[in-house]
Computed example of a mutant assay.
Amino acid sequence: MKGIMEATKDVRAIEVENVSFSYNGVRALTDITFSVDEGEFVAVMGPNGSGKTTLLRILLGMLKPESGKVRVFGFDPCRDAEKVQSLVGFMPQKEHISTKPPLLVKDVVLMGRAARKGILSPLSKEDVEKAREALEAVGLEKVWDTKFSELSGGQQQRVLLARALAVEPKLLLLDEPFNGVDIPSQNRIIELLDRLSKKGVTVLAVVHNVSPLIHHIDKILLLNKELIAYGSPGDVLMPENMIKAYGAIIPIIVCEEGFAHPLFGDTHG
């Protein structure tokens, strides 16, 4: 692991060059190019079917692009899958956690560390400590021995975030982390992600509503099968870009501090 961390010095967290991908001949992404520096907090937005989740899967090495180049801290996610997975924490959009047998919260949070160690390697004291720390970071240390199925939707989302954090990632990939999350939980998650990015963790989060994040993110990646715009929120949230992405005029309110807030984003079906 130390060798991998050394190899990631002085390289960008994410580099995507001219990437295209199709599902059974139907184009999902076309000629996507962008880069993310280490420690940046980037929101990915666009309408349903715009390729947001597909992009995350490509970064994870779950999908191989038809063309183009992808690097995560200098590694190819498909060719160097194990190295990339050791650097990334992933929170999927929705995840079904089996209730037969019923899993405790601690079991869910420890899944990520267990997966990295392999089936034959037992969990260590350090693994348990890191899992507890991750659960504490999302404000749920008191539910360690609670059944996961007994938690509210918002609490379950925070537990899944803790699972991603427990592996001590250099890069966090989050797919709709606020689905089913109440406002207090959402604010807690946003504050946590903001602190992590300030400590050098790179965060790429797919969101349907960027407004709650506006004061925290560095950049927005606006997507609709092709890259519509990429840059600071003020540069991206322009009427012409929103029309290109959503096919309609999206009202944008600029607050006194100068931050732009679109009145609505996409919804995920």
Score class of each variant (00 low, 15 high):
Ile190Gln: 02
Pro239Ile: 05
Glu257His: 15
Glu17Ala: 13
Arg163Trp: 11
Leu123Glu: 12
Pro262Ile: 05
Arg71Pro: 05
Arg57His: 14
Ala115His: 09
Val84Cys: 00
Glu15Ser: 11
Tyr23Trp: 09
Met1Thr: 15
Asp145Gln: 13
Ala137His: 06
Val206Leu: 04
Lys170Ala: 06
Asp218Met: 04
Ile32Arg: 00
Val44Asn: 03
Val19Asp: 02
Lys170Asn: 06
Arg71Lys: 15
Leu263Ser: 08
Ala245Glu: 06
Asp175Glu: 10
Lys52Tyr: 09
Thr267Phe: 00
Gln156Trp: 07
Val203Pro: 10
Lys130Ser: 14
Thr33Asn: 11
Lys219Val: 07
Met111Tyr: 10
Glu133Tyr: 14
Glu126Gly: 12
Glu240Ser: 07
Val236Gly: 00
Lys198Pro: 01
Arg27Ser: 12
Leu161Ile: 08
Asn241Glu: 09
Lys142Asp: 14
Gly265His: 06
Gly139Tyr: 06
Phe264Leu: 03
Leu103Phe: 15
Ser197Lys: 00
Val143Trp: 14
Gly247Leu: 00
Ile217Ser: 01
Leu87Ile: 04
Thr30Val: 12
Pro102Gly: 10
Asn179Ser: 14
Leu213Asn: 05
Pro122Thr: 10
Ile217Cys: 00
Glu38Trp: 08
Val105Leu: 12
Thr202Lys: 07
Ser152Lys: 06
Asn209Arg: 13
Val143Ile: 14
Lys244Ile: 03
Tyr246Phe: 04
Met1Lys: 12
Phe41Cys: 06
Thr8Gln: 04
Glu240Ile: 03
Thr54Ser: 14
Asn24Arg: 14
Gln85Trp: 11
Ser197Thr: 02
Val26Gln: 13
Leu123Asn: 12
Glu38Arg: 15
Leu227Gln: 08
Val236Tyr: 01
Tyr23Glu: 09
Lys147Val: 13
Val105Gln: 12
Leu227Phe: 07
Ala134Phe: 02
Arg57Gly: 09
Lys52Glu: 05
Asp76Cys: 03
Leu222Phe: 02
Asp37Lys: 10
Pro92Ile: 05
Ala131Gln: 11
Glu6Cys: 01
Gly74Ile: 07
Leu173Ala: 05
Leu110Phe: 11
Val206Gln: 09
Ser211Cys: 05
Asn179Asp: 12
Gly231His: 06
Lys142Gln: 15
Leu237Phe: 02
Ala81Lys: 10
Thr30Ile: 14
Ala260Gly: 08
Ser152Thr: 06
Ile190His: 02
Glu95Phe: 15
Ile243Tyr: 10
Asp145Thr: 11
Thr54Trp: 12
Gly180Phe: 11
Phe73Glu: 12
Ala134Leu: 03
Pro251Thr: 10
Leu60Phe: 04
Glu226Tyr: 08
Glu129Phe: 14
Glu66Met: 00
Val167Ile: 13
Ile252Pro: 04
Ile214Phe: 02
Arg195Ala: 00
Lys106Asn: 15
Thr30Lys: 15
Gly49Leu: 07
Pro122Leu: 07
